[in-house]
Design a protein around this nucleic acid. Structure first.
Lengths: 337, 337
DNA sequence: CTGAAAGCGCTTACAG
DNA sequence: CTGAAAGCGCTTACAG
């Protein structure tokens, strides 16, 4: 008959201690305004004394909300997680949600069972989802957008439906700006190391480079591709050099690739920016620590993540959000151009 | 009376369709062995046809388990998330759990409300927790270990209780090995750039450096500290050089710091490894892309994360796990020593 | 091997 | 402003 130690105190216990009904305790817990100040105080006192914490499962079952949000990440996560840009987006979303009632559930979209994630999302386990997939095979998520509030980070490749909400930077404009910065220092033979063409960011940055060169009558034939990583940048740089063309500028689609490219350039005694002017995207530690430090386009990744979370919360609450939200980028001039 | 569209099919619907009771459907869903093959098949057919997915909240409320695991991360997450090592640990844990019934909930231990995380963990919202905090103020989590299955990544600073489960690399041995590698190339004036001394890894690697030098009668006075980031490494390198001592080797406690130090060395025309031999810890893209590529100790971060998850799952299931699990490191020889 | 029934801890119309 | 009661969708002894 004595009180046992471990089990969490329940609403019922709080109610008994405060001398009110469970309904009233529930109202206090949920911040209902229709509770008298006096009762409100009693109940809060009991809650504090008992260290009562509401049971999520019960609450969820009763009101049909889960208070949890999925963060979907492509399995190809080795690359993904170690990319400071994505890591920072996640951080921004997580920190924003830490101040809300929502909890973030990490979902790895595994290739072994591709339907698993969809099942989970559709299974009523979350109130909404943040999608960071960027590959061409993101169709399944795009289709889910009809039945579950979702916000995409970066534009998905397969956007037929239109009824999507995405938070993105204007990658085309960013690349154009970065490329023009090279032109301003008087260069005229400008190459690019582009990102993967099965990602929106990869496509758009290549496009932006073109849009800077074409209007001024410069050639757009010097293109190599990398996977956004340092080794990818190294390989692309080598290929570029092997062409035997006189290059005096390169727009490189990510700082990590620029970093790899720089290494090759150093090894061959090619000077930056004297011989080749370089600009890139991402203001991460690669851009900052490179020699010379890289002139780059900063993407406010943390803000992007927070924005994604904020929009999703709005969506879940039944609010309206724009289909496309653009996060402004800023050009950071350093020594590489 | 017509069937409406959206609402998830319930257990009840499946039962009706399969012509059995809800209890039986529940048994099938949970893989009970005491169901006849025939009934089992009928039920599974109904489940497939209805695309039934069990409601987590209801299940959780009924059986007292949440099937979710918290991943606790210190708020000081800017540094944290962009550290490839931690990112990879998280990835390892997430991928391991993706194949289980458990879901990973990201918890940022916010400084604004330090008790919030504790409340969440104690509130019965999760079945267990993975703690990646490494600072001296991790006491609150250590204390929680009594009431909730927990596994620590890296040894916590305040380990009074003893009843802890930690997965760690042997940082002392790693540092000793790395430092000895410098000695083997005939160096005798060996400095270190150590990590933060409020983290276990920072302390232990400094200790390992000492243990390599003292037995052979070398001085252990050349110590500078950094925060594990490239800028931290730069600053420490500058301080080291300002001492005006002839240094011919440096053990640097992280690749990111080594990376920063290398930048300073390049600028001053000091050659690596000719003038100064360098070894470090972490086989990430910093170590791989540096010039020269860094001789380093690889910590299998993904495996560490997976191991943490695995041990926690065992603990939750009521199993026994060792208090300390050591992940082996491996020395990777490259051009910097 | 299978079913009826109680119960998990909340929320929420509905009355008053 | 407050309470009694039904209900959220499962699981699990308990019988049979």
């Amino acid at each position: 008959m004595g009180e046992s130690a471990k089990p969490q105190p329940t609403l019922e216990l709080v109610a008994a201690r405060a001398g009110v009904s469970r309904a009233t305790v529930s109202r206090v817990v949920n911040g209902s305004t229709k509770v008298s100040a006096e009762v409100n105080e009693q109940v809060n006192k009991a809650i504090a004394e008992l260290k009562y914490v509401p049971n999520r499962a019960a609450r969820s079952l009763a009101n049909g909300r889960t208070n949890s949000i999925a963060l979907v990440i492509p399995e190809n996560a080795a690359k993904f997680f170690s990319d400071p840009y994505f890591a920072t987006v996640i951080q921004g979303a997580a920190m924003y949600l830490a101040d809300t009632e929502f909890t973030l559930t990490l979902l790895i979209a595994t290739e072994a069972d591709p339907a698993k994630t969809g099942r989970y999302l559709r299974g009523g386990n979350v109130d909404g989802a943040l999608i960071l997939s960027h590959h061409s095979d993101d169709r399944s998520y795009v289709e889910l957008a009809g039945s579950l509030p979702m916000v995409f980070g970066g534009r998905p490749m397969s956007n037929e439906s239109g009824e999507l909400h995405v938070v993105d930077v204007d990658n085309v404009a960013a690349a154009t700006t970065a490329t023009r910065t090279i032109l301003e220092s008087g260069r005229s033979r400008v190459a690019t190391i582009a990102g993967p063409q099965n990602m929106g960011a990869g496509q758009d940055r290549l496009q932006g480079w073109r849009e800077a060169l074409e209007p001024v009558g410069l050639a757009t034939d010097l293109i190599e591709y990398g996977d956004f990583t340092p080794p990818g940048g190294e390989a692309a740089m080598i290929s570029l050099l092997e062409r035997g063309v006189d290059i005096d500028g390169i727009f490189i689609a990510s700082a990590q690739m620029a970093f790899g490219a720089l290494k090759i350039l150093h090894e061959r005694g090619i000077r930056v920016p004297e011989d080749i002017s370089i600009t890139t995207v991402d203001n991460d530690s690669y851009a900052q620590s490179a020699s010379p430090p890289l002139t780059t386009i900063e993407q406010p990744a943390e803000r992007q993540g927070a924005m994604m979370a904020q929009l999703l919360v709005t969506l879940i609450a039944g609010g309206q959000v724009p289909e496309r939200t653009i996060i402004n980028t800023v050009l950071i001039k350093r020594g590489s151009h």
